[in-house]
Design a protein around this nucleic acid. Structure first.
Lengths: 223, 223
DNA sequence: CAACTATTCAATAAAATTATTGAATAGTTG
DNA sequence: CAACTATTCAATAATTTTATTGAATAGTTG
């Protein structure tokens, strides 16, 4: 026979574990990571994560049932977004836990970074100083819509896939610091490599837009 | 064909999700919650969670593989403990996320609390003031070994299962504030009910020992 | 070093999760 | 309101997770 206390615990832990369970899948982790940038349609999410639309939709249902994402409709499209800051907070603490304790993660990141031979990254504090002194070009290499939703103050936007053709918009004289979404976003590595190859003085930002914003450092948005 | 970037993401998210997956089970959540109090043996964990020893052991293996717990041996027993503060931090942010977004959790907690008719709880700040003014008896109702490992400064220990027989050690004149492990620990509700029934002026603390300690409020340990 | 004991392992069956396919649906737009 | 389209659903098979049982193991203790 179960005591009332035992029954209570069973329900509470069962319910709480649903949240963790919803996060406990690679695809859904990537979706949360993406949605931290803002709302996206099912189609876009599917494209980014390399899943089929149907499969993406199913994973989104799981996240929705766990109250981690919510929908809003615009025209023919349904946009999925995180239900709150604490969703990103939880995902961050899980990510940091994983990155601290899981050697495979560290190894994968190190190895991937090593593929590019980009010098050292610049820290948020150092970048802030440079931005305030005005002696740096801050380059946002994320897709354009993500830039519009919010970017580092005075950053200019050249999405990675346009960088090759638009590279001449940049000056070879000034130092360029590129950034993207966060510590797992590797667009910035490709960008810095490309810039360096073309003779630009380019470095990468240590963290990403989200971390910058959460520190309360100056940001801006278009429209 | 998968790009290098895609492969990188697949590995990273797969690895990161292992951590979340390890947390995504009711029993393992309860184990983490318990281990936040300190190291325990397999047998003790099994007793607390109402599982068989073998099953407990298997769940502990899962947590160990995810690097969330580690073992240390003392005599014939193996003690399991959390591998670091960030494990508790992640569990906390998941719990808070769940409690904020999951109505079932709220409902279960409210309903269980309603079973006891214990007035309002006292907040950490208010309790701190009373402790410093010295006009309150702080009562730790957790098992004795947990008390010894760390407790609220000047708290006295009467584990819940001894409270009935030792109740006369307390004064009916002074206000008593009882506490236990954390927001999910309901020992304190039973304690306050028992005390009130016997004519003591008893209230419960809003949060638990862990939250008190994490605020940096005064604690003490025996031995 | 033999006996003991806390813990783990291995095997199994039941239950849950996942990706895929193709059809169904709901909601908008002209 | 008919046509369209983004999204969801339903069914299925493959995989993974879980609890149970009883045996095996490793490590301590006298």
């Amino acid at each position: 026979m179960k005591t009332a206390a035992r029954k209570f615990k069973d329900t509470v832990y069962a319910e709480l574990s649903k949240t963790a369970k919803a996060l406990g899948n690679p695809h859904r982790m990537e979706i949360i990571d993406l949605l931290a940038q803002g709302p996206f349609t099912v189609e876009t999410i599917a494209r980014y994560t390399g899943m089929t639309i149907a499969n993406t939709s199913q994973h989104l249902q799981v996240l929705k049932n766990a109250q981690l994402v919510a929908i809003s409709r615009k025209g023919n499209y349904i946009y999925y977004q995180l239900t709150g800051e604490n969703v990103y907070a939880a995902w961050t603490s899980l990510r940091e836990l994983g990155m601290a304790h899981n050697t495979e993660v560290k190894k994968a990141i190190d190895q991937y970074r090593k593929g590019f031979h980009n010098g050292d990254a610049i820290s948020a504090e150092a970048l802030l100083e440079k931005v305030q002194a005005g002696d740096v070009i801050v380059l946002d290499v994320r897709p354009e819509d993500e830039y519009h939703r919010g970017h580092i103050h005075q950053a200019i936007s050249i999405p990675l896939d346009q960088l090759q053709e638009r590279i001449r918009e940049l000056s070879k004289k000034q130092e360029i610091v590129a950034y993207c979404r966060g510590s797992l976003c590797m667009l910035v590595e490709e960008a810095v490599t490309l810039l360096t190859q073309h003779g630009y003085k380019a470095r990468k930002f240590d963290e990403g837009y989200m971390d910058w914003a959460l520190r309360g450092y100056p940001t801006a948005m278009t429209m």
